[in-house]
Amino acid sequence: MNAFTIAKKELNLYFRSPIAYGIMGFFALVTGFFFYSAVGFFLQRSMQMAQMGQSTPMNVDEWVVRNVLSNISVVGLFLIPMMTMRSFAEEKRTGTIELLITSPLRDSEIIIGKWLGALVMYATLLGLTAVNMVTLYAYGTPDWRPMVVGYLGLLLQGGALLAIGILISSTTRNQIVAGVAGFCVCLLLWVLDWVTAFEASTLNKVIAYISVVSHFESFAKGVVDLKDVVYYITMIVLGLFLTARSMDSMRWRA
């Protein structure tokens, strides 16, 4: 119940800060760019195909939707640390954490509230990109199911990264440190995926499993793979659980 109060406060503060509008503008611009270049590429290729006498039309889901969703997932990787860097670090720096901790709130309510607020903010960002997708319907009737699955995947991936970002923010009182550390971790989670490109050994497969991005591939193709859903949910639960541990240890030291 009180988690919603915290979530509302978080959202409120997001939309008060100029950073949020900066992030939203940047996100809309970048994803818009990806979208229109994907569409442009798609049109060019289908024209060539038609000239060469190909009778089966190219698939817009495969060439536009999948591409754009994958790109959004990578952009999200770099925006999320900016969204979570303040989360706990700023409350610790300004002392508002004392208000939260000495109020009759459970730690879990504070943590889930912060995560939920950030998730709604991220969903809003995704909503901005969905506007692009809707324009596809002006030119045809792409299948809506892969899109919904894709956005579900983006939301799950976002939820996992937000949980990691909040965990990092809870370990410091300096939001810049939290932002940079969050960025590094996200970068690491992204590049871990590449190791399988060199050699598909067991170790590399394990490393790739940890990578957040590899689990998004199935969603981008419009497939809900239970193993990927489990991965993301595990990351969310683990991240938030470790945040609770971090709050606990802060209490003993602070």
């Binding site: 409120n12 300004t94 004392e98």
Partner: peptide
């Protein structure tokens, strides 16, 4: 606390509403 636990971006009434809820 020694430094009042305030959110500078919030308005006074809004802040007190938040506190009253938690």
């Amino acid at each position: 606390p020694e430094t009042p636990p305030l959110y500078p971006d919030m308005e006074v009434a809004e802040y007190l509403d938040f506190v009253s809820r938690i």
